[in-house]
């Protein structure tokens, strides 16, 4: 996340590194929309094809509501970390970064628990196209959360290691944009995959 632009201090013309990196991350997120769009569409196509296995009745809505709430709140801690970085309050920033990573890990733990439960109830990736598309969609989302946790911990580590640069806040903003994106993907998944199917 800490790619710099070709710094050209001589030129009269100087690309603002803030704009450069934010352009890149938004362009990338535009691409990610189609990635998750394809996964969600596959699920919509297969949602009723449950074969001999269980269908959406295995979902435990109260449980998933809580983990959705955890992820939503991690967006709050993330934006607070970003806000602290704009005030150059590095101590607060680290606290909120670690809080975000923690909430992300709680969400992941919840997903592991949920997957195990479903497998016990007879829903696996190989049970039905419904099972395949459910696990692959939510699994890829979970992988994105895991990458986000690594990015958060890495950013916090760099900050602890005293690797502050003038653009430190920028890194937090980049990680934040990615993190919020992963959150909005879950907003869509929670509604389309869980609430609308039970």
């Amino acid at each position: 996340m800490s790619e710099h632009t070709a710094v050209d201090t001589n030129a009269e013309h100087h690309a603002d590194p803030d704009v450069v990196r934010k352009t890149a991350i938004w362009v990338f997120l535009g691409s990610e929309v189609l990635f998750f769009g394809s996964l969600i569409s596959t699920f919509l196509l297969y949602r009723t094809r449950i074969g001999d296995g269980p269908g959406a009745e295995v979902f435990d809505i109260p449980f998933t509501s809580v983990s959705s709430f955890v992820l939503l709140m991690s967006s709050l801690t993330m934006v607070l970390a970003h806000h602290a970085s704009t005030r150059k309050d590095w101590r607060q920033m680290r606290v909120w970064l670690l809080a975000t990573a923690m909430l992300g890990m709680v969400f992941l733990a919840g997903q592991v628990y949920e997957f195990t439960e479903f497998v016990h109830e007879g829903l696996t990736v190989g049970t039905s196209p419904f099972g395949s598309s459910f696990f692959v969609l939510t699994g890829f989302h979970g992988a994105h959360v895991a990458v986000g946790v690594i990015l958060l911990l890495g950013t916090a580590f760099m900050s602890f290691a005293g690797r502050f640069r003038p653009d430190e806040g920028m890194n937090v903003e980049m990680v934040g944009l990615y993190w919020h994106f992963v959150d909005i993907v879950w907003i869509a998944i929670f509604t389309i995959v869980y609430l609308l199917q039970v």
Partner: peptide, 22 residues
């Protein structure tokens, strides 16, 4: 365009290795 085929390629890979039924 690439993200869409990426999903398809993952599904091919999972069909072959994880026993998914895409």
């Amino acid at each position: 365009s690439l993200p869409m085929v990426a999903v398809g390629l993952f599904q091919v890979y999972f069909d072959r290795n994880l026993g998914t039924l895409f």
